[in-house]
Each structure stands twice: as structure tokens, then as C-alpha cells.
Amino acid sequence: MFAILIAGIALWVGAHFFKRLAPDMRANMGNAGKGVVAVGILAGLVLMIWGYRGAEFIHVWAPPTFMVHINNLLMLIAVFLYGMSATTGRLRGKMRHPQLTAVKVWAVAHLLVNGDLASILLFGSMLVWAGAEVAMINRAEEWKRPAPGDKKKDVLLVVITLVVFAIMTAIHAWLGVWPFPG
């Protein structure tokens, strides 16, 4: 299953980097290229989940119990940051890469509470990928900061963050991973 996990990671990273590493090839594909990339990303995600869920547990380190609290706080922050990318509120434009920053926070949060090899491979690779993606984007394009919007939209973002966090918690519980110490 480690091979499936690694193949998924490679496909995810390759599909995301395709536009930046082979811009001419991607441009020549036209709109079909978007579909190819989308299929590659989706296939990579499926393989990562399948490989991670089926991977043998190989203990590397034992995270301290209190890290669960830090993980939960970081996950709440990650959900908020991810949502910032779609907000039209005052927070719009405060951060250049809110989605990729959210992925980095998500990865660090999970590395703090998972000490097995499959987790280190999955979350560590996503942390490295998101950092590399930010670096590639920053080098390729100048950022034009959007104008801030209505502050009521930021309140909506907080509400949506709490709802999405509750849904994610329920999904983790349904999968047998209770995210709160008890």
C-alpha cells in the first residue's frame, strides 16, 4: 500500500506542477488540458487516501497527548485560511496564498499527532509540495492585492469555518478517528 500512497502523492504533485513545469505543453492542450489535470489531481487524491488507509502501521515516534489540542486549534485555523481564498470580505487580500497556507497548517497539524511512517510520508509531502507551489507561483507572477470588501462577509467566514470544522470532526469520528482527547 505504500507504493499506492507514493504513486498518489507523485500524481498529485505532478498534476499540480504540470502548468508551471511544462507551460508550452499545457497551453497546446487547450481546454482539454484542464480536464487532464483535474483527472490527475482526483486520481492522485484517491490513490493517496487508498494507500494511506491501507498502509501498514510502522511506528516512528510517539506524539505527546497534548499535541491533539494543538492539532485541533491548527485545524480550525487551516479551515479558516482555506475559506479566506473565497471570501469577499475585509480579509480578502490579506494573504497571497490562503489555500496553500491552509494546506501547510493542515500538514503540520497532522504531523504533530501522527507518528507513523505513512502519515509522515503523506503529510510531510503535502507540506513540501505546498511550500514548493508557493515558491513557484511567487517566482512566476506578481501579486495584485484585491481591494477589501464588506466586513459582514468576514463574520460569515467565521460561521462557515465553524460549520465546516464540525463536519470534518464528524467525518473523522465516522472513520474511527476521534479528534478530541477524552
Rank of each mutant, 00 (worst) to 15 (best):
G131I: 06
G149V: 02
W129A: 15
I137V: 05
V158P: 04
D24S: 06
W143T: 03
L74E: 03
A109K: 01
L156K: 13
V134H: 06
L111R: 00
G93W: 07
I41K: 08
M75S: 05
M84S: 08
V108K: 05
P181H: 12
H16N: 06
L91P: 03
V134T: 09
L156D: 09
G83I: 11
L127K: 01
T161A: 09
F2H: 08
P181I: 15
A78N: 03
H69D: 08
L156N: 06
F18M: 11
I58T: 04
A140P: 08
T88R: 12
K94N: 13
L42N: 10
K153R: 06
L76M: 06
I171W: 15
K94C: 13
V134K: 08
R145L: 08
M84D: 08
I4T: 11
P63T: 02
I41P: 11
I171N: 11
I160D: 07
I167L: 15
E133K: 15
W143V: 02
M48D: 00
E142L: 12
P63H: 10
P181D: 13
A118M: 01
V177G: 10
F57C: 10
I120K: 04
L175Y: 11
K34D: 01
H59W: 11
F165S: 07
V79Q: 01
V79E: 01
A22W: 13
A170P: 04
I4N: 04
L21A: 09
T88A: 10
G149M: 04
V177C: 13
V155S: 11
L112W: 08
P181F: 12
L47I: 03
P98V: 12
H16Y: 10
W12L: 04
F180M: 14
L100V: 01
V103S: 02
M48R: 00
N71L: 14
L81F: 13
I4M: 10
D150M: 06
A130G: 08
A15W: 00
H59D: 09
G44K: 02
I41F: 04
V13C: 07
A86R: 07
A32D: 00
A170E: 07
G89E: 03
R139A: 15
A78T: 02
L121M: 14
W143E: 04
L175E: 11
H16E: 03
F80K: 02
K104G: 08
E142W: 12
W61Y: 14
P64W: 07
K152L: 14
K144V: 14
P181S: 07
A147S: 14
V79Y: 00
F80G: 01
N31D: 06
V105I: 06
G30A: 00
I49L: 08
V108H: 05
R26G: 01
V105C: 07
A7I: 07
A130P: 04
P64S: 09
D150C: 04
F80L: 05
A130M: 01
R92V: 13
E133A: 15
H59L: 05
H16D: 02
G115F: 13
D154K: 10
L45S: 12
F2E: 12
D154C: 10
I70R: 11
K151C: 05
M136R: 09
R145Y: 09
R139E: 09
G44R: 01
A130R: 01
H110F: 10
L117G: 02
G35F: 00
K151A: 06
L21P: 02
L122N: 00
N138S: 13
G89F: 07
L162D: 14
V68P: 11
G30F: 00
G54K: 06
